[in-house]
């Protein structure tokens, strides 16, 4: 749905993707855990991101893209699997 996804969005149509988080950038907004709770969680003590599954199933791709595009700190990266 979000058009600004640049992180290999074209090459992950098949669901062949991987998720990375740059935790040093995280500001604990928590949007990722709201959009894709099977993939991201929020650390209860400091609110920062916890990556639950770096290889989510294909049916999670839209939720992960929403999480990526709404992450205000650019913490989440979607990469195509080679």
């Amino acid at each position: 749905m979000s058009s600004e996804n640049k992180s290999g969005a074209g090459s992950i149509q098949s669901g062949n993707f991987q998720v990375r988080v740059h935790r040093d950038r995280c500001i604990g907004a928590g949007h990722c855990a709201t959009y894709a709770p099977d993939v991201f969680a929020q650390d209860a003590s400091d609110g920062l991101v916890i990556l639950l599954n770096e290889n989510p199933p294909a049916d999670q791709i839209d939720l992960v893209k929403d999480a990526e595009s709404h992450c205000p700190s650019g913490t989440i990266e979607i990469v195509a699997k080679s």
């Binding site: 604990g28 209860a44 920062l48």
Partner: peptide
């Protein structure tokens, strides 16, 4: 900014 913000982020979690 990161140092001070992280003193507060835990106060605004979903939980």
């Amino acid at each position: 900014h990161t140092k001070f913000r992280r003193m507060l982020t835990g106060e605004f979690t979903a939980q």
